[in-house]
Every structure is written in structure tokens, then in C-alpha cells.
Simulated scan of single mutants.
Amino acid sequence: MSSRDKRSNTPDGAVPSGGSTQPAGHGVPTPRAMLVVVVVLGIQVLALLGSALSFILTAISAGPLAGSLLGLAVMFLIFAAGVAATARGSWKLHRWARPAAIAFELLVIVFAFSVIGGTLWLG
């Protein structure tokens, strides 16, 4: 039996198609605390999608501001896709997901401070 067959965890001795014998997530079980991170990011994805939808609905009757509102909707959809990918990456314990989540949260904090000037509750 070759060393390649010894590494394999398939019954016929074949190496899985990905070339790695480790399951997705690098073989490390996801800690329960990571569920909090994934849920918070998921809520933020839903908020971004809801905002994008409201921009689209408002753009229908906005007249000359419709282009700007649609641009904001596209931007929020792009952010939602990025945050959703970060949530998935966090659940699978990918190394790139942590700095992406932190960067997004910093953007949210900066946005919150800019809004505090208008209404403290909203900030």
C-alpha cells in the first residue's frame, strides 16, 4: 500500500478530487461562539438587502433622484454580497473572513458616528 493510499479516507483508497484529505473547514469544528458572529453578519445582510429594496421602491417615484437611488441600491447589494460571503467564510473558519468582518464593522461604526449628528438613537 502506497503512502498516498494510507492518507486517503475513501474506501477504495482513492484521494478525494480536491487533493486534500481534510474536510471543508480545515477539519476543525466550528466553535459555538462563531454562531454569534454569523448571526450578526446575517442580520446586517438582511438590513442591507432591505435598504436596497427601499431605495429601489423609492426610485420609482423619485423623478430626477432615481439614478442616485438606484446607484445606492446597487452599492448596498454589493455590500450585502460581501457581508454574506464573510458570514459564510466565518462559519467555515476561513482566515480571510475575520479581517473582512472587522473592516465592515469599522465602516458601520464610522457610519453610525456620522449619523449621530442628526439623531442619537439612529446612530
Rank of each mutant, 00 (worst) to 15 (best):
A84F: 08
V83A: 11
S61L: 14
P23K: 06
H94D: 02
S3A: 09
G13E: 06
V45R: 04
S114N: 07
A24E: 10
A103L: 00
T30C: 15
S114Y: 04
G67S: 15
G50Q: 07
P31D: 04
N9H: 11
T21C: 02
G82V: 01
T10I: 02
A52V: 12
G50L: 10
Q44S: 13
V108G: 04
V74L: 15
G13W: 03
V39E: 13
L93A: 06
S90T: 05
R95G: 00
D12Q: 12
G25T: 06
S51W: 14
I116W: 14
T58H: 15
R32S: 14
L77E: 05
L69I: 11
K6E: 12
A103W: 00
S8Q: 08
L35F: 15
A73N: 10
A33W: 12
F55E: 15
V39A: 15
V37F: 12
T21I: 03
I116H: 10
R88I: 08
L70G: 03
L48C: 04
A97G: 04
I109F: 00
W96A: 09
L70N: 10
K6A: 14
T119I: 02
W121M: 12
A97K: 03
G123W: 08
A112Q: 03
V39I: 15
H26F: 06
A87E: 03
I78Y: 03
E105T: 04
S90N: 01
G50K: 07
T21G: 00
R4C: 09
G42D: 06
D12M: 15
R98E: 01
A84T: 05
M34S: 09
A112I: 04
A101R: 05
A85T: 12
P99Y: 02
G123N: 10
L122F: 12
D12I: 13
N9W: 08
M1I: 07
F76A: 14
V74G: 06
P29T: 10
P31Q: 04
A66F: 14
F111P: 06
A59V: 14
V28S: 04
G25Y: 09
V38N: 09
F104P: 01
V108K: 04
S68I: 05
V115N: 02
T21R: 04
L70K: 05
K6R: 13
I43C: 13
A80K: 01
G118A: 06
A112N: 02
A84C: 07
A97T: 05
T86N: 01
R4F: 08
G67A: 11
T119F: 04
L57H: 14
F113T: 03
G42F: 05
P99F: 00
P64N: 11
G71A: 05
A87C: 01
V110H: 00
G67L: 13
L46A: 15
S17F: 13
A52E: 14
G50I: 02
L72E: 14
A85L: 15
R32H: 13
T10W: 06
S114C: 08
L72N: 13
M1G: 09
S20T: 05
P16M: 00
W121P: 13
S68W: 04
L107M: 03
L122S: 12
L106I: 01
P23Y: 02
S3K: 06
L48E: 09
S61G: 12
V83W: 10
T119P: 00
A24W: 07
G27Y: 03
A87T: 00
L93E: 08
E105V: 01
A101G: 07
V115K: 09
G13M: 03
V37P: 04
G18V: 05
T119A: 07
S61M: 12
L122Y: 10
